[in-house]
Write a protein that binds this DNA or RNA. Structure first.
Lengths: 344, 344
DNA sequence: TTGTACGCGTTATCAG
DNA sequence: CTGATAACGCGTACAA
């Protein structure tokens, strides 16, 4: 109890509060007395009472998507982003509250603010679906500070877009495909993920662009659909093998490393090796890229930094959490490894 | 404001509270009126005030270790455990608070309780060091409910051990080594992790045991030290190659998948293939085990369930969070894959 | 079955 | 510089 401290230090409770919060003018001697008394009594202010009095939860909420069967956390980039978010939140004196989204039961984000559970929100794994977009639009209208990570939404009508932190996947994709072209490939298969992710659209746009720039024909039968899981890449083995053996494909660009590895495994079972029989490039540069054999050419995305920036923009120390729809796009970088050795 | 709801429903604030909390006898008709009023006004109780009044934070804290350079989240098992913890916490109506431990600056866990930031604590990545043990012993003395995951501590003196949820790594290790013996290996290298983790000790004990049971000589030069990272396994390439080429080793058992994969990659560069030139077994059955080529024989650990159980034991609905030093040990299972094909 | 009244431990405002 | 004191929004005896 703060009262005890006040009595022991021979001051009022108000003064104890001032000392402990470093606010207002306090005589140095008084301050020392209070500090000593607090230390002696082992006084720890109740965060519950503080937050109640300040009407601020002190929490930064992080919404995680529900992905059945796939342990979402293991998806590398979630982990990385969380690390960045956590680092920044801690630096700003906020606690990190994890919020698991229920399957197809989109959380009522606004209620989280109304209940004062969070002061700001970062949303991971959002997709461009009616459900997700609707939830975000409502949140936007409510005027609460939030940020969408690794996903962008086109401005619709005169509605301003949401605050977003994303990476430049269009450029990343172009760098990857250009690299494949540079080493002599001309029939490049593209394995993409679901279109609800802006990530997928960006990568596709980059792929199309480089093909056009290089005077290569865009053949729709070279564009395959996966869902970002390893098995979805593996499931394409038949098609990929046929394309390669028929001479219709000499390279594969997968929208993430897991699909790339799945494809690589499937093709290996058929006697086709990445870096020898075809060039292979993944995306994300997850640790799996280095674990693969041959190690995977990939595109490094600054997930950690993205998380950090999102948190920083939300938690700006200059007073209240910021609300601003500006969208930040971070650069990515191609990393060339064994899976795309230049063709002799 | 609750007041508005009360007025609109024509009842007192206390009744509103009773209805919303489903406590005490309330006439059905009154209840409906209150619910309708609350819905109409879009009333959401302030979690801040509730928690303050109840003197409970409603938070389950999860302490994550700080591992420099290594993005801790990506370490598969953390992710899995977090998933399990989160699932159970949500089911019990608790929020998940993430707490990042600062490097070598062990958090003052007790203060988290004194500040009412958490009602219970789960600690991940704890080691058996003076620092960690000391912090836990203090927490134990303070009488607050907490649980250590995937790490055990020997009872010291008459101090009771901490509440723990672990997996049976001794048996897992025995199953792995026995499998290697069964397929005809007799010179089994063991790559272990740091001794501060009970995991490492358990695996070592299992290794020793099977060697003894099988009448195989325990040769200390076959026991190598890594640190659970891929690179630490890779760094042993020289020694491993020498042992295998000299006929002093025909199998490798690594204490986790990452080290196994690192070793596998190093040896591949020297022309030695797992499943052909030597048998290889990892541990954890991370997704990396399936991503590797050849796919890795490994030991599946129910990390998700471990997290779930820890949370459940802490959050038992029968009133207050439980304090009990009982230690739960979950079974693990060997999964045989290509990296340890039987030797012809 | 419902209303009244109080307390929870801080912060913050306003005098002194 | 420091001390009273009023909120803060809810839960919960206790009384009716």
């Amino acid at each position: 109890m703060r009262q005890q401290v006040a009595k022991l230090a021979g001051v009022s409770e108000a003064t104890v509060s001032r000392v402990l919060n470093g606010v207002g003018p306090v005589k140095e001697e008084t301050k020392q007395r209070v500090l000593a008394a607090a230390a002696e009594l082992g006084y720890v202010p109740s965060a519950l009472a503080q937050r109640f009095a300040r009407k601020k939860s002190g929490n930064l909420g992080v919404v995680l998507p529900y992905v059945p069967k796939v342990p979402l956390f293991s998806t590398y980039y979630f982990s990385e982003m969380l690390g960045g978010i956590g680092e920044e939140a801690q630096a700003q004196g906020y606690d990190l509250l994890m919020l698991f989204r229920k399957p197809e039961q989109p959380r009522d984000y606004t209620a989280l603010f109304q209940a004062h559970k969070v002061d700001a929100l970062i949303i991971l794994g959002a997709r461009d679906t009616a459900l997700d977009r609707g939830a975000l639009e409502e949140l936007e209208r409510s005027g609460h500070p939030f940020c969408v990570l690794n996903q962008r939404y086109a401005a619709r009508g005169n509605e301003p877009p949401f605050m977003t932190v994303d990476a430049d996947h269009w450029s990343g994709s172009r760098a990857a495909v250009r690299h494949l072209v540079d080493i002599g490939c001309s029939r490049i298969v593209f394995i993409n993920g679901p279109a609800q992710y802006s990530n997928s659209l960006d990568r596709r746009a980059g792929y199309d662009r480089v093909l056009a720039e290089s005077g290569l024909e865009l053949r729709e039968e070279l564009v395959l659909a996966g869902n970002y899981s390893r098995t979805s890449g593996y499931a394409l083995t038949d098609q990929l093998e046929a394309l390669i053996r028929a001479g219709d494909a000499d390279a594969i660009f997968a929208a993430n490393d897991r699909m790339a590895i799945g494809a690589m495994q499937g093709l290996r079972e058929r006697g086709l090796e990445a870096g020898r029989d075809y060039a292979l490039c993944g995306y994300d540069d997850a640790d799996a890229a280095r674990m693969a054999s041959p190690q995977l050419t990939s595109v490094t995305v600054p997930f950690h930094e993205m998380g950090q920036i999102a948190a920083r923009r939300l938690l700006q120390q200059d007073g209240e959490p910021k609300i601003s729809a500006a969208s930040t796009i971070l650069p990515v970088q191609l990393v060339i490894r064994e899976s795309s050795r230049s063709r002799q």
